[in-house]
Design a protein around this nucleic acid. Structure first.
Lengths: 190, 190
DNA sequence: GTCTATATAATGATAGAC
DNA sequence: GTCTATCATTATATAGAC
């Protein structure tokens, strides 16, 4: 799978970037081909079945990354507060490391057709439920005081995810620094 | 302008909803016409010059609403903390009252062509600068302790705006209740 | 103002030469 | 694997009858 999947990975990398920059529908197969210095969109079909396959594999790349990061956090012994804070930082770091995939995970997934769309939503909902459980444990321990854990979870998740809109990999702060600062603002306010 | 602009407002209202539900590019003129019980997309062109005019007018509706709400807050005498909290709540209420326009303001605006795209971004940046000034005043007064006001502003704005993704007008809490709860979580943490 | 028909352009995808 | 050429579809927008 050395040469073949390398070419496929190149296509996926280009698609990720264009889907984030312009959106899935505004990105044509010809756009992707151009960025790969191919003369026509047709050449891409030697490597993929169709455009939506790109969207689907990128969406799953993101989902897998979020789950893997959360499972690593939950495998460590920690207080509920420490675990929630670690989960927040881990989630934010995944976003910084997969900005293109994050754009698909948060925005472009809706252009998936059934049954993939529903499959995606189910995995995303399962992930969000795990985050709510972490938050509830934190409230039960007294470390957090959110009175409405459903509302707090919606806010926490959407606020974390919103970082994709402004984070720049070459900014003055490292990804780790930004993630820690954001975690502190989320947990303790401005 | 009674009958004519009423029809135009109907078109804009339908477009707002569809742009939010499916996205600007995924919404065809025929989709809009269908929702208005017109037989062909052509009829719409008796009221508008083109599809992008809809995007543009909706984007400006949102921009105007955000500026109006912020100016009303700044016209009142208040401490920096009270003013920031009032600005947050006002911003969140605008989103709850203009969910379709908010989707355009935050997501779909990028499909504007030049020079409208740049004009939009300039107004949005000006608005965000005003928010940063409010936050800096709050830090200077000692009511907030954010050490990095640029980062804090980016977080605050994006976290507020993220509410568009989960807020439901017919939920168990009123818009005012949700806005106040969110403001408290943003200012004081979870 | 709405209808039908259509001009024009762009898209995702395929076929066959090399 | 990439190329060129092309098909079928869909989109925005226009023209003219009513």
């Amino acid at each position: 799978m050395s040469r073949n999947s390398r070419r496929l990975d190149q296509i996926r990398a280009v698609a990720e970037r264009l889907f984030r920059d312009k959106g899935y529908l505004a990105t044509s197969m010809r756009d992707i081909a151009d960025e790969m210095h191919l003369r026509g969109g047709g050449s891409l079909y030697a490597h993929i079945k169709g455009k939506e396959d790109l969207l689907w594999s990128i969406a799953n790349e993101a989902t897998d990354a979020f789950f893997a990061a959360l499972e690593a956090v939950c495998a460590q012994p920690a207080t509920p507060y420490e675990r929630l804070r670690a989960a927040i930082i881990a989630h934010l770091l995944v976003i910084t490391q997969h900005l293109g995939a994050a754009a698909v995970y948060f925005d472009e997934w809706r252009h998936l057709t059934e049954p993939r769309r529903s499959q995606f939503m189910a995995r995303r909902d399962a992930y969000e439920k795990q985050f709510q459980t972490l938050l509830e444990a934190c409230v039960a321990s007294g470390a957090c005081h959110a009175s409405d854990t459903r509302l707090a979870t919606l806010h926490l998740l959407s606020a974390m995810n919103a970082m994709r809109h402004w984070y720049k990999p070459d900014g003055r702060l490292s990804a780790q620094q930004v993630a820690e600062a954001l975690a502190d603002m989320l947990l303790h306010g401005l």
